[in-house]
């Protein structure tokens, strides 16, 4: 049933964020430490469990896949509700950060390629 998938997804999200909150309290920062990332790891782990122990059947999977397909629309809604007027006052910082991040990442490709080739050589 589709609700099984939705339920598993909700469980993973809640557990991950809860763990993130707990880690934040433990290390003494007032924030959620990696909760969404932990939730993703939980979901991946559950999805890769041996089928005999835990199996999400095809219809239940649709309950997860639906929400994964909703993520761009939700990001669009999220963008539309931000304080963009205040952000524009600091606009150049976003533009600079975006451009430089791309430039540096492109520059790393040849470096990693060389590393990859020397790895092949060793084999």
């Amino acid at each position: 049933m589709i609700i099984y998938g939705v339920s598993i997804l909700a469980f993973c999200t809640l557990s991950g964020i809860y763990l993130g909150d707990l880690i934040g309290i433990m290390i003494g920062v007032k924030s959620n430490v990696g909760g969404v990332g932990i939730a993703m790891l939980l979901l991946i782990t559950l999805a890769h469990f041996p089928k005999k122990i835990f199996h999400i059947d095809e219809i239940s999977q649709k309950g997860v896949i639906f929400w994964s397909a909703m993520y761009i629309p939700i990001i669009v809604a999220m963008a539309a509700k931000q304080n963009a007027v205040a952000a524009l006052a600091a606009g150049p910082v976003a533009l600079t950060a975006g451009i430089l991040a791309v430039a540096f990442s492109f520059a790393m490709i040849p470096v990693l390629m060389r590393f990859s080739k020397s790895e092949d050589h060793k084999k």
């Binding site: 997804l9 909700a10 993973c12 999200t13 991950g16 964020i17 909760g35 969404v36 939730a39 993703m40 790891l41 979901l43 991946i44 999805a47 999977q61 997860v64 896949i65 639906f66 929400w67 994964s68 909703m70 993520y71 629309p73 939700i74 990001i75 669009v76 809604a77 999220m78 963008a79 539309a80 509700k81």
Partner: peptide, 17 residues
């Protein structure tokens, strides 16, 4: 729709693929 709850829910769902 663009609030924290749906945002986290949908982003976690993308890990399923």
């Amino acid at each position: 729709m663009g609030g924290g709850m749906f945002r986290d829910f949908a982003i976690v769902a993308t890990a399923f693929g």
